[in-house]
Design a protein around this nucleic acid. Sequence first.
DNA 1: GTGAAGGGCCAC
DNA 2: AAACGTGGCCCTTCAC
Length: 591
Amino acid sequence: MEIYFQLITDSEGVARACGEFASEDYLGFDTETTELDPFDGELRLVQLSNGKNTYVIDIRPFSKIGDLRAIPELAPLRELLFAERPIKIAHNAKFDAKWVRHHLGTDVNGIFDTLLASQLIAAGDQDRRHGLAEVAAFFLQTEVDKTEQVSDWGAPELSQSQIQYAAKDAAIMIALRERIVERLRQDQLIKVAKLEFDCVMPIAAMELNGFYIDQERWREQLAKVENELSVIALELQKELSAGVAQASLFGVAEINLDSQGQVADALRNLGVPVPDSTRKWQLEQLAGDYPVVAKLLEYRAAAKAVSSFGENILEFVDRRTGRLHPDFRQIGAPSGRFSCSRPNVQQIPHETEYRRCFRAPDGRKLVIADYSQIELRILAEFSNDENFINAFESGADFHSMTAAQVFGVAMDAVTPEQRSFAKRLNFGVVYGIGAARFAMMTGLSQTQAEDTLRRYFSTYRGLDAYLRHAAQTAVATRVARTGSGRMYRFRFDENDRQSVAGAQRNGKNFPIQGTSADILKRALCLLHQRLRGTSAMLVNIVHDEILIECGVAEAEGTARILESAMLDAGAEYLKRVPVKVDAHVSDEWSK
DNA sequence: GTGAAGGGCCAC
DNA sequence: AAACGTGGCCCTTCAC
């Protein structure tokens, strides 16, 4: 493809390019940077293209004038990027948005992200890759040469080849979007695509904001657990070694306590009937009869805490900001849930000792809000089950309410055990639980479990019908959808009972989990709009929970904005069932 | 030495 | 695969 491009190095060029492009509907947009982390490197190039002309703006000359975020010479560029129109088409726009926000001091609005779109179209196909080269090959049957991607973008003079590569990546976006939009339309993914695109900037901002961790508190907690661990390890080592036959003159062979093989052998030598695996739930059954097993569980918990929630988390604290800046993958799961890594701040243990380490810096506050029972409310809405909906409308304790309905007793006569059954049933039903598993987790016999499940589903006939229908539809159409239209394509072998059963469970779970993700994403978008111009900043999201950090004076107001954004988002997807959000202001993540 | 696979376990 | 869904991270084991 022949492309026409111009390198721009001065303010007249910026004004001319941005002036010319301001009236376009769509622009290809890309950046080249000297590093991957915006806190490390330099934003070298910003490329804009209408498909015919491409402007490659060298940012370096402007950094000599003054602060890139303030100099008037770049105002036209900032305005173009900030405007909702033209739409900026980028591949993995989060990357470019972070660099622009950090270095040019403006949000990028009006985003079309070809990576997210490609993921939506792939609809859960894990084999598909979504790099620009793969996406261009898939939608345009065009080869994109990415060799210059890792070239030296810090060189004083960029080569003609580098500039051409930079221009091409932006230019290709126009055609790519056209083809992708066709597919999004065919697959009825326009609404969910818009939802995803509107989340890019909030997430980019959140990653730049970072999440504050009190390193001192964390180390104190770590020291405590490390102490515990060394004591338990010693005791456990001694107890396990007692059963080892091959004691030698030099003492007993050390057992690697982290090796499930060695531990299982040692336990068997002690006469413990260890089943095929040494997983927690299996060991828990044995812990009552065998103190050594209880000790092993203690060891496992402490070892996990030290290895997964120890010093390694602190290694991710940025030396310049003093905060964690995790990577959030916007479509981390096919259901639309986020995933998070380096570090994963979505899996911090719920215990106060850990959560309290994530606090507001001095002079600030955390505003924390989460959806109450959002997945069950979605299930109630989708199934249109009168009893289930009534339970929510009554506003009473939901699990007690279902216990009362399922066991046919008055609300105030529900025993703690009945409530516990109802609670586990309510959670399990979202995942498509079966009687065997329910029996296992409650200690009921298979028949009792079957009986309880039957009673549950005859109380909630609508729920039963909906879940059956969802499972059937998944198998018959091989497609499931969420409230926003997000799609999952099932790939199963109809002759393989296991894989059919898997599709049935996913058919039940995907729309629920996915709609929950839809609602959270909608809330993020509303929130970003409503918090603009305040000191409040998004710092973490955990599936049904949003954390914001802000100034003390703004905390109460922020809490109200957060709560209403989440409620409004929920109400867009749930028409019959009330949405409930619990919001509070706190110094720490823990209440 | 390095990487993949699998067990195990944290979150929602 | 505990016949309950979605992730990421740590560890050992095993193959190259």
